[in-house]
Design a protein around this nucleic acid. Structure first.
Lengths: 111, 111
DNA sequence: CATAATACATCGACAGGCTAGGCATTACAA
DNA sequence: TTGTAATGCCTAGCCTGTCGATGTATTATG
């Protein structure tokens, strides 16, 4: 099932930061991982992910480096900065509050 | 605490429909009720609510009527149409899926 | 009597997601 | 071998919903 893209708005940066907390990843990989982990409830597209990555990098929340894999493939890997880690914690708290507020407005029928 | 307005996007119509499932309400009232019930985590503004109400009405998901209260106040009350009730159920299922997917992406640390 | 609150409405600015496109390389099947 | 799909990066322009600002009118209150 595909979800209204307006719902996605705002969570994309948080999800990226959270992914990078675990390990370095490159953009295309994030798309595959997120879509697969959510069984395509999230359907990330390159047209929204890459601009978001660039914005996070220019805000110094993530940083990038070009790495070459064993098979010779060049990929742009992103990792979390210390600033990004702080922001992630804040965004997580915000998300938590949001989820519970939505649930409250629906008489706790959602969670 | 105020939440990034991008998170709000998309849930506004669903919350409105859900409010109207319980009873008729007028716009200004919805703002007060939602902000209060969420302890201002949601901070609905007139500039986004009224256009949203108009759009829902033109889509035949809600309908309006001007009523005059005992104190003489004229208010535009909205109520759910049968079509709106169906859409509400669909949106609720969608929201549920979304909330759980977000939680999954955060290793179940949110809910 | 003035100010705040109630109650409706609209406008332009802004921002993020989408589609659609481009480019280069690698994998694979016909 | 050759063409198609997949990988992997990117950008441009459109669309849409939220915001702040503003407007109007009425009622409540100090």
């Amino acid at each position: 099932m595909k979800i209204d893209s307006d719902l996605m708005r705002g969570v994309t940066p948080s999800v990226i930061l959270n992914l990078l907390k675990a390990r370095k990843m490159y953009g295309y990989e994030m798309i595959k991982v997120v879509n697969e982990r959510t069984n395509n409830v999230f359907q990330w597209k390159e047209g929204s992910l890459y601009p978001c990555l660039h914005k996070l990098e220019s805000s110094k929340l993530i940083q990038s480096e070009w790495l070459t894999a064993a098979n010779g493939k060049r990929r742009k890997y992103y990792s979390l900065t210390s600033n990004g880690l702080e922001v992630l914690d804040a965004k997580k708290a915000e998300l938590n509050l949001f989820l519970h507020s939505v649930n409250t407005l629906f008489e706790n029928a959602l969670i």
